[in-house]
Write a protein that binds this DNA or RNA. Structure first.
Length: 373
RNA sequence: GCUGGAGUCGUCUAGUGGCAAUGACAAGAGACUGUAAAUCUCUCGCCUUCGGGCUUCGUAGGUUCGAGUCCUACCUCCAGCA
C-alpha cells in the first residue's frame, strides 16, 4: 500500500507526505507535466532546481514513442529521463478520447497513430501493463471521458470507467504480484473518479472508487472553474481521508490550485504553465502577461520582482521580450522555468500557509491581486 | 552617354485591360487547463453610423466605359557596353 502521512487536516484540506519508492512528495504539491518523459524546454536538473517534487508522463505518448519496452529496458521512467524523484503516469485515456477516428468499445479503444498511421489498441489491461513497463511510482486507471456534457453521456462514461477500473485493478494485482516475486520496486494505482459536473454522478463515482480500495484517487474530467469547488466537496467528502488524491489536469489558472487544495486535493498536474510559457504568456503576482507585447520592449525590470527563479533573478522583461521576438530557444527555457516555478511555489506556499494557519489570508490576498479584484 | 531590365501596403512578392490588389515575413492583439500545441485565431492603405465611403501600384501626362497592367516623357535603381 502507498504510504501517505497526514500532518494536518483543515476542513477538507490537508497537509501530508506521500512516500514513494523514489522519494517523498510533500503535499499539496504541483506535479510537472512531462508528457513525453520530458518537461518541454526544461532539463530534469532545471526542474529539480526550480523546486519540482514530481513529474507526470503520459502512457499514450510513450506507447507511440519510444515504446514502453524501451523505457523498461532503460530501467524505467526515472532512470531513462534522469528524474530521480517521484513519477506518475497518466493512463492515456484522456488523450485517446480527444483524438479523431477512435473506435471505442466495451473491450478497448482503437486508434491510428498520428505519427505513421499504425493501428493501436489499448485496453484497461494493456494500459496497466504499459504503465508497469514505464515504471512510474503512481499509475492512473484507464478511464473513459464523455464525448458530450449531457447527463446520459456522462453517466455512461462514468459507468464504463467503473467497469474498466475493475479490470485495471485485476490486472494491476497480477502485475504487482509478479513485481514482488521479481524483487522489483512497488508501483501504485489510483482509481479515477468521473461524473462531469453532475454531483450525483460524482458522488456515485467517488463511492464506487473508494470501495475498490486503490492506493489513491485521480479526479478526472474537471474542466470548469465555476462549480469546481462543489465537485471537489462532493467527491472528497466521500473518498477516504487517508489516501492521496490527484486533481487531473488543473492548474493553468492559479485559482484552481487554491480551490483544489482547499477542497482536499493533494497533487495537481497541468500542461498549461509550460505551454503558456512557450507561447509567451507568463505568470506574475499581478496576473498573466504576454511578454511579446510591445509595451515590454523597454521594460528593464525583472519579470516578477519577488520571484527567486533563475529567470527573474537574472533577466529583464525587455530581454525576454527580445528573446521571444527573435524566437530564440532560450525564450522558451527561461519562460518555462518561471511559469513552472510559479505554480510549484504557489502550491508550496499553500502548503506552508495551511500548516501555519494563514491559508485564508494568503488565498484572498493572492487572488485579489492576481485577478485585480 | 548607349543598350537592356526593373520600380506594387514596413520588407520581399503575385498580378498583362475589369471589385484596395496575391502570398510570405515583419508588426499589433488574443487564445491556451490529465500537450498530435516552440501551436492556433484575428487585425494589418485611410475613414466608417459596419451599409459603405475615400485614396492607392516611382512621377507627370495620355489612350480607354474602365489602367498596377497599354502609350509618351521624366526620375530612380540594376546589368552589360562605352
Amino acid at each position: 500500500m502507498l504510504k501517505f502521512d497526514i500532518e494536518k487536516n483543515i476542513g477538507l484540506a490537508r497537509v501530508g507526505v506521500i512516500h514513494t519508492p523514489h522519494g517523498d512528495i510533500k503535499t499539496p504539491a504541483f506535479v510537472g507535466a512531462a508528457t513525453r518523459a520530458t518537461v518541454k524546454a526544461l532539463t530534469m536538473q532545471e526542474m529539480d532546481e526550480l523546486g519540482s517534487q514530481a513529474i507526470l508522463a503520459n502512457t499514450y505518448h510513450l506507447i507511440l514513442r519510444p515504446g514502453v519496452d524501451l523505457i523498461k529496458e532503460a530501467g524505467g521512467l526515472a532512470e531513462f529521463s534522469s528524474w530521480h524523484k517521484p513519477t506518475f503516469t497518466d493512463s492515456g485515456g484522456f488523450q485517446i478520447f480527444s483524438l479523431p477516428d477512435v473506435k471505442i468499445t466495451e473491450e478497448s479503444v482503437k486508434f491510428k497513430s498520428y505519427l505513421d498511421g499504425r493501428k493501436f489498441e489499448i485496453t484497461p489491461e494493456s494500459s496497466m501493463q504499459a504503465q508497469w513497463a514505464i515504471g512510474a511510482d503512481i499509475h492512473m486507471a484507464f478511464d473513459h471521458l464523455a464525448k458530450s456534457e449531457k447527463y446520459q453521456d456522462m453517466k455512461e462514461a462514468m459507468e464504463r470507467t467503473h467497469r474498466w477500473l475493475d479490470r485495471c485493478i485485476a490486472e494491476n494485482t497480477k502485475l504487482a504480484k509478479q513485481a514482488t516475486k521479481n524483487h522489483e520496486k512497488e508501483q501504485f494505482l489510483y482509481a479515477v473518479v468521473q461524473g462531469g459536473d453532475f454531483l450525483d454522478l460524482r458522488a456515485e463515482s467517488a463511492k464506487y472508487c473508494a470501495d475498490k480500495n486503490p492506493d489513491g484517487f485521480g479526479i478526472g474530467g474537471v474542466f470548469v472553474a465555476d462549480g469546481m469547488d462543489e465537485i471537489l466537496k462532493t467527491v472528497n467528502s466521500i473518498l477516504p481521508v487517508d489516501k492521496p488524491r490527484h486533481l487531473l489536469g488543473m492548474g493553468e489558472e492559479p485559482r484552481d490550485l487554491f480551490i483544489g487544495a482547499e477542497f482536499g486535493c493533494d497533487t495537481f498536474d497541468c500542461v498549461g504553465p509550460t505551454r503558456m510559457a512557450r507561447n509567451g504568456s507568463l505568470f506574475t503576482l499581478d496576473g498573466r502577461i504576454n511578454i511579446k507585447n510591445a509595451k515590454f520592449a523597454h521594460d528593464f525590470t525583472p519579470l516578477m520582482p519577488d520571484c527567486d527563479c533563475e529567470c527573474c533573478k537574472n533577466y529583464t522583461r525587455a530581454y525576454l521580450h527580445h528573446l521571444f521576438r527573435t524566437d530564440e530557444i532560450t525564450a522558451k527555457v527561461l519562460a518555462s522555468i518561471h511559469n513552472e516555478h510559479f505554480v510549484v511555489s504557489v502550491v508550496d506556499k499553500i502548503r506552508s500557509s495551511l500548516l501555519d494557519g494563514t491559508f485564508e489570508t494568503y488565498k484572498s490576498e493572492f487572488l485579489a491581486r492576481y485577478y485585480h479584484k
